[in-house]
């Protein structure tokens, strides 16, 4: 349609920064959450992989932190349109976490403390593109940003990077998570601008 707003110039990104369509650059770290921030003591923290009927694997904080970790530098793209480039994290690769689990499931429901959920294909958690992150910018991850630990799956919009993760349910059929049930896209690829349900 393209209505032109006379007198509007905007703030163009400078240099060669390439952002997904409809995103703008920010340098701070906005917070988006649907409810109060849960505070989970480390001694009560658990992370469980289950198949919907039984737990397949479970870690407490100590055994989780015994897993090999990686330093990660990635760009973040939030559906509310800000992008933040070159963020530094430390976390455990989902390849490590899923490594010993045999499953023919194709989908995953990520579950959080505070009852948040988000769904994604299991393939998107594999192959060096997803982590359970527990440090940001060389500091323990703050509760409002998802601490003690959050999913980091930066090739999808940031609502997929569930804060306060407590587990992953393996599923044979895709099911919508929290925002996916409330009008947001089932997959959420920022480069294809899959913001809302119905976006192609």
């Amino acid at each position: 349609m393209g209505i032109i707003s006379r007198g509007f110039f905007g703030k163009r990104a400078v240099g060669d920064v390439k952002l997904p369509p409809g995103q703008y650059l920010t340098t701070d770290f906005p917070v988006l959450s649907a409810g109060p921030t849960p505070h989970i003591p480390l001694e009560k923290w658990e992370f469980t992989i289950d198949d919907g009927t039984k737990a397949l694997r479970r870690w407490d904080w100590r055994s989780f932190r015994d897993l090999p970790t990686e330093n990660i530098t990635v760009d973040l793209h939030c559906v509310t349109r800000w992008s933040k480039l070159g963020t530094h994290w430390e976390g455990v690769s989902l390849d490590t976490i899923l490594g010993e689990i045999e499953t023919d499931a194709d989908y995953a429901m990520v579950r959080s403390y505070g009852d948040y959920t988000t769904n994604l294909p299991l393939a998107d958690l594999r192959n060096k593109q997803a982590w359970i992150a527990f440090r940001f910018d060389d500091e323990d991850l703050a509760p409002e940003h998802g601490g003690p630990a959050r999913l980091l799956v930066p090739h999808l919009y940031l609502w997929k990077s569930a804060k306060w993760v407590r587990g992953i349910r393996l599923m044979h059929e895709d099911q919508p998570g929290f925002w996916e049930s409330l009008g947001y896209h089932i997959y959420g690829d920022p480069w294809r601008e899959q913001r809302y349900s119905g976006d192609e």
């Binding site: 920010t26 340098t27 701070d28 906005p30 917070v31 959450s33 649907a34 109060p36 509310t80 800000w82």
Partner: peptide, 8 residues
């Protein structure tokens, strides 16, 4: 809750 950050 609905939040807007300093840049939002």
């Amino acid at each position: 809750t609905e939040r807007f950050g300093p840049t939002g």
